[in-house]
């Protein structure tokens, strides 16, 4: 029971940064923008949150700064792609490179310093319930934020006027423009939301996952988040399943090895990718549903006719 509890806790830790970053990217892509700079925004969030938390001693302030760092990085992308209309793919890739390099520069003075750990919450009685207590009521705040965010995104996208506008912009920006919606404005906002979520994911890495700053510490998690969005066919519910499935298979791979079961470790390391892709492909077998949910305008620039 205790071993199981430890495994579940580790799965939650491994899944949370993926879920956070992917939630933001889902909204960005729903508005018709493909931002390949998730990794760059995430690492900027990580270094800035670490720096802020280390300097002030407050993890919460660190989270806030990480969030803003993600937004600031994403605004650079938004300005380039929406206002100057550069290629989204090229700009997104450069954003990743920029983020990795710049974070190394900012973080130079912070490598090797003991970080501030984001403490888990503790609710008397509830957290003390054996097994389910620590799992349901003993996480750190960002875990709850990640779950609340995906629920909120799901609600907003499909049950509110704002959601309709985002989907309209993503599906046909000319019609949305003709109806009087500010396509560029909506996209700026969605890119910013994506940046905020990636920043939070970065903060989670630097404050909760491994509380320290090391260059390159995101180690490709931004790319996994990007892939999860596509394989979830832009549906928040499936994104949640995908992120946790990935985390579960990832940790189980390590767990099985620790037990000494003779499965090749290379296979176990690639299993999270394989399983997630297969499961998400199977559950999204309905092709017309994929077509309905794929933002038709993804990656296309919009120039309002003057």
């Amino acid at each position: 029971m205790e071993a199981l509890e430890a495994v579940i806790l580790t799965i939650i830790t491994a899944s949370t940064p993926l879920l956070l970053a992917a939630t933001g990217e889902l909204v960005t892509e729903r508005s018709g923008v493909l931002n390949l700079g998730v990794e760059g925004m995430m690492i900027m969030g990580a270094v800035c949150s670490f720096a802020a938390a280390y300097t002030t001693g407050s993890a919460l302030l660190g989270i806030l700064v990480g969030l803003y760092a993600g937004v600031a990085t994403s605004m650079l992308f938004a300005f380039l792609t929406q206002t100057l209309m550069t290629s989204q793919v090229a700009t997104g890739l450069s954003l990743t490179l920029l983020g990795l390099g710049l974070s190394g520069l900012i973080g130079e003075g912070f490598t090797g310093l003991p970080g501030v750990k984001l403490e888990s919450i503790h609710i008397p009685l509830l957290t003390d319930i054996p097994f389910i207590g620590p799992i349901l009521f003993g996480q750190d705040i960002l875990v709850y934020v990640s779950l609340a965010l995906i629920a909120a995104v799901s609600y907003v996208l499909f049950h509110t006027r704002i959601g309709l506008v985002i989907n309209a912009v993503g599906n046909n920006h000319h019609s949305a423009h003709a109806l009087g919606y500010g396509v560029i404005r909506v996209r700026y906002a969605c890119i910013g939301f994506g940046g905020a979520c990636s920043g939070l994911a970065g903060a989670y890495l630097a404050l909760a996952y491994t509380p320290q700053w090391i260059e390159n510490m995101s180690a490709g998690r931004g790319w996994i988040a990007l892939a999860l969005v596509v394989f979830s066919t832009w549906l928040p519910g499936r994104l949640l399943i995908g992120a946790y499935l990935f985390g579960t298979v990832w940790i189980m791979g390590l767990y099985v090895q620790g037990l000494g079961v003779g499965i090749p470790s290379q296979l176990l390391s690639s299993l999270p990718y394989l399983v997630t892709i297969v499961v998400l492909v199977v559950i999204s077998g309905n092709r017309s549903l994929i077509r309905v949910n794929t933002p038709a305008m993804i990656g296309q620039p919009f120039a309002p006719e003057r």
């Binding site: 940064p17 890495l205 996952y209 390159n216 510490m217 180690a219 990832w250 390590l254």
Partner: peptide, 8 residues
């Protein structure tokens, strides 16, 4: 080198 995975 993957601090997260090493920690896991």
């Amino acid at each position: 080198f993957d601090p997260g995975k090493e920690a896991d």
